[in-house]
């Protein structure tokens, strides 16, 4: 039982990271119907910014995280303005291909700037206590990570549902043209969405580095893909869906690693992708999604 609990906590931790990244995917998709494939790479840029803020400028970890969130948010907005905005009225496929190009651009730019050799993120867990669960131990940082992620999600939910700007965001995702006619500044809302999504990705990067302290230009690819699956699992475009999907995927992944016998342990990664296939086959709109009405 304690084994199950430990593995469940492991799953929650990685799930919280997936959820934060998935939120960026889902919010952007909700507003402009674009799957921003560069989103995982924004997380990678966030990791580099946090790294430099921490090691080169000597900032404390919470300030480094803040600098990283602001920097990545600005980058997200700039990318939208330069790469996606001109294609707002073009076909969705063109925008998707542009997103892939942006992803490659970010990866290769970072490889050029920082070399492809991985860097070690300083350990922040060294002086933190560990908690024993049965005969396993869990570092307090795991609980801190999960708590921070959940806190951020609650704030986001309050922001979207309670504030005027948040409601404007929902309105734009409902019907962009109608929202515009109602006097909502759609361009501002889109930029804001990119900024929030990117900042969340940067925050996810910092949480990621707490436990997996290595930074390299391709580090965003795998978490990006898995977070995308989490967004689809929860129902892409739906904010609570991304949160549920992220946690669920993290737990599924952790349980697969924990309970699939050693002899078959190579297949654990496939389980995550199997989830994507099953969702697309059984309920393409995702767990929390409503089937889309076809307008004639």
């Amino acid at each position: 039982m304690t084994y199950f609990i430990t593995q469940f906590i492991n799953g929650l931790q990685i799930g919280a990271i997936y959820a934060l990244i998935a939120l960026g995917y889902t919010m952007v998709y909700g507003i402009i119907k674009l799957i921003n494939f560069a989103h995982g790479d924004l997380m990678m840029v966030g990791a580099y910014i946090a790294f430099f803020a921490l090691s080169n400028w000597g900032l404390p970890i919470y300030l480094a995280a803040a600098v990283s969130m602001v920097g990545t948010a600005i980058l997200g907005v700039v990318i939208d303005r330069i790469a996606y905005k001109p294609l707002r009225d073009a076909s969705r496929l063109s925008a998707l291909i542009t997103a892939i190009a942006v992803s490659l651009l970010l990866q290769n730019a970072c490889m050029l700037l920082f070399s492809s050799s991985p860097r070690r993120f300083p350990t922040v867990t060294a002086n933190l206590p560990t908690i024993s669960i049965g005969n396993s131990t869990v570092n307090v940082i795991v609980f801190i990570s999960i708590a921070l992620a959940i806190a951020l999600m609650i704030i986001l939910n309050l922001f979207v549902n309670k504030t005027r700007i948040g409601k404007a965001m929902l309105a734009v995702s409902e019907d962009m043209r109608a929202a515009q006619l109602m006097g909502i500044n759609v361009d501002f809302i889109v930029s804001l969405t990119f900024a929030i999504g990117s900042a969340l990705a940067a925050f996810a990067a910092v949480l990621y580095l707490f436990s997996y302290p290595q930074i390299e230009p391709y580090m965003g690819a795998m978490p990006g893909i898995k977070a995308f699956i989490a967004a689809v699992l929860g129902g892409i475009g739906i904010i609570p869906g991304a949160m549920v999907g992220g946690f669920l995927l993290g737990i599924i992944e952790s349980m697969a690693k924990a309970y699939i016998p050693s002899a078959f342990s190579q297949v654990t990664d496939a389980v995550v992708f199997l989830v994507l296939i099953l969702v697309l086959l059984i309920k393409p709109s995702g767990l929390m999604g409503k089937p889309e009405k076809v307008k004639v």
Partner: peptide
């Protein structure tokens, strides 16, 4: 005898096992 894949960074489940 646990295994992981090429780009894995998370080994906690295997190590807990």
């Amino acid at each position: 005898s646990e295994t992981y894949g090429k780009d894995d960074k998370d080994f906690k489940s295997q190590l807990t096992k």
